[in-house]
Amino acid sequence: MAFKKAERTQLYLRCALFGPSGSGKTMTALLMAKGIADKMGVPFAVIDTEARSASKYSDRIPFDVDDLANKTVDTYIAAMNEAIKAGYKVLVIDSLSHAWRELTDEVDRIAQNSVSKNTFSPWAKVNPKQKRFIDAILNFPGHIIATMRSNTEWVICEGKNGKSSPEKVGLKPEQGKGIEYEFDLLMEMDQNHQATVTKDRTGKFQDETITKPGEAFGVALYDWLSSGTVVPVPEAKPAKPVKAKAGDPKAAPSGKPPAEQPMAGSVKERGKGIIQEIGILITAAAESGQAYFTETEKEEARGIIHTITLDEAGIGDLEALKSFLNDELAKRKTTNMPQTAATPAATKAA
């Protein structure tokens, strides 16, 4: 490892649009994608989870579409893999919110079937699935424009004529906590089809309000993204939709049983190191000596670890569990509320 002069290289766009129903997320995403695709001279594709809403604009904007009937993290990842195989370099995902809904529904289901009814253990179990989903988006070898629904509410606003009228406004995106960190460009849409740029790594549009951003905006983004130094791009490897479990015949290549596969010692050591770090997290205590995690939560975390195989996929699951526990510990330290056996372990994640 050595330091070298930093330089900006050509990048793939990771853009997310969020806003209430009717704010124009789908049309904006399609127009931006068309601007980029036309500039590149390639077609673009859409993963549609919104009851074929994108196809309503196909008479004006040509694109290929995969309408997801079963809206799960694994079907999203499978669709992205198909886009990779087909060679698409511009992809619209409309929207990401259904994947998050699958996870929250799964957490609720697990929690209701548990004795404690808390959501600590369920979130620790589903967090690796969210991590695979985000990794698939970040590793896609092309430009991605994604939409997200947002929680909405009606507020009373004063119009141009001085009269008050109700207006629908968006709140936070319906996706995982911290999702905004994964994108280069984050745009909040309103009912007037205006986009406020709340995050911008290009440095060109931060805090600007753009009325009906479309093809020209997509072209402007592409020009900036393609102006850096060209770097070799490794061959894309489709993400794994489902992690095979130990003992499952699918876990081994055809004609080779699982027992014959070599296990790198370094992988095992990495796994053991992460497990030790998790142990430190779950046994943390306040200055008063009161533990931040209950004994039940500690056992739940250990139980999850016992289900994880120490291979490359398992390392990812352990890292996701460690990240979840680290965030939970930080939250409890901030609120200065160590857990007790009588206190619910964790509230539902935002």
Rank of each mutant, 00 (worst) to 15 (best):
I145K: 01
I145A: 02
I145H: 03
I145L: 12
A146D: 03
A146C: 12
M148Y: 06
R149L: 03
S150R: 00
S150H: 00
N151T: 12
T152E: 14
T152M: 12
T152H: 06
E153A: 03
V155I: 15
I156S: 09
I156L: 10
C157T: 15
C157M: 13
E158D: 04
E158L: 04
E158K: 13
E158Y: 01
G159I: 06
K160N: 11
N161W: 02
G162T: 08
K163D: 09
K163P: 00
S165E: 14
S165Q: 14
S165T: 11
S165W: 10
E167C: 05
E167P: 00
E167Y: 07
K168F: 03
K168C: 11
K168D: 02
K168R: 15
K168Q: 14
V169N: 02
V169R: 10
V169F: 05
G170E: 06
G170D: 06
L171I: 05
E174Q: 14
K177W: 09
I179C: 09
E180I: 12
E180T: 13
E182Y: 12
F183G: 01
D184Q: 15
L186N: 10
M187T: 06
M187K: 05
M187S: 09
E188P: 00
E188D: 06
M189F: 11
Q191E: 15
N192Y: 11
H193Y: 11
H193D: 03
H193V: 04
H193C: 09
Q194C: 13
T196V: 10
T196L: 12
T196R: 14
V197N: 02
T198P: 02
K199V: 08
R201K: 13
T202I: 04
T202L: 05
T202Q: 03
K204T: 07
